[in-house]
Design a protein around this nucleic acid. Sequence first.
DNA 1: AAGGTGACCGGCC
DNA 2: TGGCCGGCCACCT
Length: 111
Amino acid sequence: MKAKAKNNDSFFESVYEIVRLIPEGKVTSYGAIAKAIGAVRSARMVGYAMNASHNMEDVPAHRVVNRKGLLTGKHHFDGTNLMQQLLESEGIKVIDNKIVDFEKHFWEPDF
DNA sequence: AAGGTGACCGGCC
DNA sequence: TGGCCGGCCACCT
């Protein structure tokens, strides 16, 4: 069996915790999450964690974008425009892999 | 154990 | 907004 549940208390788990708290219709940046867990300099790790989030169903990685509001991680999703579809489905306008009014939909992890 | 990797960020132009 | 460069740090092989 694969058993890739990753029960370890790794850094990834911390990231999932925050991402899971993201409300619908809201988006956040990797840096914001990194800061929330207390690892501003580990923003890259946040993206790394999202890579493994594919096994996690409760992790809406599609609500996480880079600082520019670009769907940088959309390439890692099942489809090509799956991420965009999900965001639009929640009321977020996405044009050319870019979130419209990114700041408006920006959600900061509440400690 | 050491090196390579990466869904990033910030600064500069 | 966009492109380039350096730093940073946990995970993987």
